[in-house]
Design a protein around this nucleic acid. Structure first.
Length: 805
DNA sequence: CAGAGAACTTAGGAAATTCAGT
DNA sequence: ACTGAATTTCCTAAGTTCTCTG
């Protein structure tokens, strides 16, 4: 691309574009506090001005979706609620499925949230309704009456539910057999019991140490100090940002509840007494008897029971996270600027309840009111509140196995599957666009290539008050290194601050483009790589290529597609274990593609060593057998030359150490057994065994140890004296099998060390692929999907073995 | 037309529970 | 039966996408 492809775009358009780019680049630089001058910023826009207006406008100003919402919303503020709200919703419901319908349906009338109108929506059947009431609308007596019934928990109590207008069906509703159009309301009727609040704080009275003094605190303060004591021993406690943020909020509390208190510096705080108390509590809990634990569990369940289900369109559905998040210290991931801040207790007054109209509103805790009660059936949440750290909204949704979640899950996979038919054309298109004269198009095509080939996320812009992580569109120059002729090295922090590091070959043109974007106008490493691209412009473009297509669909598509391909490596004639191994390998392939990582567990190295020891132990056994066999039948060496081969990795040093370690273990075992036996005898009222008996055994082991030390020890080969050579050969063969199995274990464990398979299994791989695979290879589904997964994917169970993604 | 907000999906780690080997 | 490992469940943070708003 050259600078000559300038066009006749009106100045205003050009300026608008480059101003935005400047801002973006400038903010980046500021954030990274790089030393760049304004020169960089000013020149960054210049190359840009070659964007033809026609193309630009096509990208940036797609025809607006016309729905009932936009026109009605302007006039609704002075209309009665009943008239305005259902109007737009109705319009949405009547519209055929598709983007426009969805847009309209989701357009929540602005007035609905703020207005407090009492007007009832016309209760016409099948019509979506939205109504808001003051939180104390439900009369307490009625509330009580309905609270006592248990329709939300047990199917047999349908009578009470029915009295409220809804029949609870206990029958499994196979929604996937219905051809339900999407885009309309999410439900017709909805009953639920609200949310469960965490228990009140129970003060323990343990003091905080400060410069040698022990200071007892009022409960409000103590609670927060205890939060910090709770993270001692984790990385958070050592994290300076975490400490500072915690202490800021803690100090504020001190000022409020303990004016004049001497606590001024974090470094002088001593949480040890509080920590000791927490450890004590943990120990106590651990020491409970089985019966006590069971009783506690029962009590907990009794408390939670009512919240676990709701009734949606007359059917019992599981609720997901019905618990209000307890207060604590915010545990932001990666280098989050707000990590450690106090996450405050949520009060009922801050909670909005969303529930069907005309059904009983759950009681708020005694002495409280709900913040708001609304009846919006265009959304799926049952309750909502705002969290104080980032101001994010937290929702109570249905569980993953519910019909609502299932439907959107199925839609997601169907959409990804639809991409199969379009992918060739889309790839051809962006490959062509890699050479576009228009910078924005070229960047878009290049980004799309990365998203498609390397499963990158879209990459929205992030604020300064969040961890600095990126996705494709927000990549900065510093995140890639280019190596001629076509190698790219990626190194950046993605979602959850998980590092994406990868060196790979790319299309030659892509490589050239990346070089161009990087150095085009003078850029510094903290400048955006794709300075003409945003996630929304990218997604807008994708919509034109396939309805409903967005950047994230590529991840789903590629994950499922690669998985299906990898499954072709399943050995049809193999054992079940081998088939499952192939399945897990395919799964792992996908997890690697999506960069699903996990921390190496702390016991990993030890576990690995143990597996290696187990392996060597079997090898040692095999060696003994082989030696023994060759000794009694040396002629076999000709026919079985492998008998003379040394066992790999098995050294004399290891053998000696292992044998000595065994002595130690055996002594310990003997002692334990001796004690146990005596314990039994005692209970039976019989005299204990003489101590000599133990001493005798120990002496034998000591002797063995000595012989190992001086090299005179001769190990038993582990077969009967009169065993035939065939028997021994068979045994050697069996040991070989065991060795192979352990080796596979070891490889799998090592490969799984940093790779998490679950995320791709739960979110990216179309379950129908797995189910079809099970049927084709005759593997029971339980071997690959646990109960949760089977429940989540019930909609997919019916596919046959020939189903393909 | 960027930025905020709403709603929903995706994510890894901790805690709880189950499993497997001795 | 006891342990330590593996798996499952819970938790909630961190993304994406789309709409609304000033």
């Amino acid at each position: 691309m050259s600078s000559s492809d300038s066009d006749g775009a009106p100045l205003s358009v050009k300026l608008a574009g480059s101003a935005a780019a400047r801002r973006k680049a400038a903010s980046r630089r500021a954030a990274a506090s790089s030393s760049s001058s304004s020169l960089t910023a000013d020149s960054s826009g210049s190359e840009e001005d070659n964007v033809p207006l026609a193309k630009r406008s096509r990208l940036t100003s797609l025809p607006k979706k016309k729905g009932g919402s936009s026109s009605s919303s302007s006039s609704e503020s002075d209309q009665p609620l009943s008239a305005k709200v259902p109007a737009s919703k109705r319009a949405a419901a009547a519209r055929p499925a598709g983007g426009a319908a969805r847009a309209a349906a989701q357009g929540r009338p602005a007035g609905a949230r703020a207005a407090n109108g009492n007007a009832k929506a016309a209760p016409a059947a099948k019509k979506p309704r939205v109504k808001k009431e003051p939180s104390d609308a439900a009369p307490a007596s009625a509330a009580k009456a309905i609270a006592d019934r248990k329709p939300l928990v047990k199917a047999e109590s349908t009578a009470t539910a029915a009295s409220n207008g809804s029949e609870v069906s206990d029958e499994e509703y196979k929604w996937w057999l219905d051809h339900k159009d999407d885009g309309g309301p999410k439900w017709q009727t909805l009953e639920h019991c609200g949310v469960l609040f965490p228990p009140e704080y129970e003060p323990h009275g343990k003091p905080l140490g400060y410069k040698g003094a022990w200071i007892t605190m009022p409960p409000e303060v103590e609670e927060v100090a205890t939060f910090f004591a709770g993270v001692l021993g984790t990385d958070h406690a050592e994290n300076k940002v975490f400490q500072a943020n915690f202490f800021d909020d803690f100090t504020e509390l001190l000022g409020k509840h303990m004016p004049g208190c001497p606590i001024k510096e974090f470094k002088h705080c001593d949480f040890s007494r509080i920590r000791a108390h927490l450890d004590e509590q943990t120990a106590k809990r651990k020491a409970m008897t089985k019966a006590e634990k069971e009783a506690a569990k029962k009590e907990r369940q009794a408390l939670e029971e009512r919240y676990e289900f709701c009734i949606l369109d007359g059917r019992r559905e599981k609720v997901g996270n019905f618990r209000i998040e307890p207060p604590g210290l915010f545990r932001g991931r990666g280098a989050h600027p707000k990590t450690g801040r106090l996450k405050r207790r949520v009060l009922p007054e801050q909670v909005t309840i969303n529930i069907g109209e005309g059904v009983r509103v759950p009681d708020p805790p005694p002495g409280h009111r709900w913040g708001e009660v609304q009846h919006d059936n265009t959304v799926t949440w049952l309750a909502m509140w705002k969290e104080n750290i980032n101001g994010n909204t937290k929702y109570v949704f249905l569980a993953a196995g519910s019909s609502l979640k299932g439907q959107s899950d199925m839609r997601k996979f169907d959409k990804a599957r639809n991409l199969v038919h379009n992918i060739d054309a889309i790839r051809a298109q962006y490959t062509k666009d890699l050479k576009s004269e228009v910078m924005a198009e070229r960047q878009r095509a290049t980004a799309l290539y990365l998203i498609d080939r390397f499963a990158l996320r879209a990459g929205n812009e992030k604020g300064d008050d969040e961890a600095d992580t990126v996705g494709c569109c927000s990549l900065r120059c510093e995140h890639i290194k280019l190596e001629p002729p076509n190698v790219v090295h990626f190194d950046f922090l993605g979602k959850d601050s998980i590092r994406y590091e990868r060196t790979t070959e790319v299309d030659k043109q892509v490589w050239k483009n990346l070089r161009l974007f990087r150095r085009g106008p003078p850029k510094t490493s903290s400048d955006m790589l794709f300075d003409r691209l945003t996630t929304s412009s990218l997604n807008k473009h994708l919509q034109t290529l396939m309805p409903g297509l967005t950047a994230k669909v590529f991840r789903t598509f590629n994950a499922s597609f690669v998985f299906q391909q990898q499954l072709r490596n399943t050995p049809s004639a193999g054992t079940e274990a081998e088939k499952i191994l192939a399945y897990n390998r395919a799964n792992r392939e996908v997890a690697v593609l999506c960069n699903h990582q996990r921390a190496v567990s702390k016991g990993f190295q030890g576990q690995m060593t143990r597996i290696e020891d187990r392996l060597l132990m079997v090898r040692y056994q095999r060696k003994l057998l082989k030696d023994h066999l060759l000794e009694i039948a040396p002629e076999l060496k000709k026919k079985h030359p492998e008998l003379a081969e040394p066992e790999p990795l098995l050294t004399d040093k290891w053998i000696k150490e292992h044998l000595l370690a065994t002595c130690e273990l055996d002594r310990e075992k003997a002692r334990k057994k001796f004690e146990r036996d005596n314990e039994k005898l005692k209970e039976a009222g019989e005299p204990p065994l003489p101590d000599d008996k133990l001493a005798e055994q120990i002496a034998a082991i000591d002797a063995r140890e000595a012989s190992i030390q001086d090299g005179s020890y001769v190990a038993e080969p582990g077969v009967a004296k009169n065993a035939t050579t065939d028997k021994i050969l068979e045994k050697i063969d069996k040991l070989g099998q065991r060795i192979a199995n352990i080796e596979v274990d070891k490889i799998e464990k090592d490969e799984n060390k940093t790779t998490a398979l679950s995320t791709s299994k739960i979110n990216y791989i179309d379950p129908r692929i797995s189910i079809a695979w099970c049927k084709k290879y005759d593997v029971p589904l339980e071997k690959i999907f646990n109960k949760t997964l089977r429940e989540k994917f019930t909609w997919a169970l019916g596919v046959d073995s020939a189903w393909t993604f």
